[in-house]
Design a protein around this nucleic acid. Sequence first.
DNA 1: GATACTTGTGAATAAGTATTCATGTAACGG
DNA 2: CCGTTACATGAATACTTATTCACAAGTATC
Lengths: 137, 137
Amino acid sequence: MARPRKIDQITESRDDACEDRIVHVDAVREARVGMPSAHEVASLSAMFSILGDPTRLRIIAALRGREMCVCDIAASVGQSESAVSHQLRVLREQNLVRARKNGRRRYYVLDDEHVEDVIRMALAHVAHEDGEGSVSE
Amino acid sequence: MARPRKIDQITESRDDACEDRIVHVDAVREARVGMPSAHEVASLSAMFSILGDPTRLRIIAALRGREMCVCDIAASVGQSESAVSHQLRVLREQNLVRARKNGRRRYYVLDDEHVEDVIRMALAHVAHEDGEGSVSE
DNA sequence: GATACTTGTGAATAAGTATTCATGTAACGG
DNA sequence: CCGTTACATGAATACTTATTCACAAGTATC
């Protein structure tokens, strides 16, 4: 009925808490052993959440191999400069982009070489899915 | 002040719309050329959104190399079976997991070899970030 | 068939979030 | 200075979403 909490609490592995019902004890144990740490899960989900927004994804895509000022980014992704600026702050806080100041412009560049790899791999994934025809069914 | 729309409209590239101000015309053109298609952006962001939830991420992590029934997944990720069932439906609809029915149990497996790769790469990224000490500052 | 068990699902709801508007601030030009 | 440009930021708000509760549906067991 409610939604009491979201983050911060579920990052616990609950090894000590009551485990409602377990059918395959060994499978659960293995799953728990192989489970990324709470910190890793938090970092990963934070990163994926950031990439999960179309505007941010476009911003990152636009910045591949290029530095751009805010208004050009806005034009590239088709959003207002204010909206882009808000999202750039999110990306900045996660160290995904970095800004260089030149006059009154601010030129943004990607600050994370791994993110490009992840997106490239995910793009390949999407292309493969489409080719296989198993994307939306 | 408002937030009139979110998806479905911003997926347009707006090549025809008014582009507020453009400083570096060539950079914007290049960015637009290199921009993934609206369909790709939508698919990518949908996939990243799914991975952006800690519970779903844990579910996927638990299912790596293993098939599990719902109650064991719930015990592994530390959530109620209902919550897990809801999330499994999301994962099912995106063809990330697949269910096998056996008696009254339902055994889930990963249905996407690429997702594991993406997560593995992202994990490496997080580990690297931590080592560099540039994750939360 | 009745009952217990496992999972799916719908409604409710609280928390989260992305955009817009308005405004602030720094940099440059007059 | 004063206005303009380029960007940042705070508040407002509409939209999204993850969990919980209650219950339904299917299955095995008695």
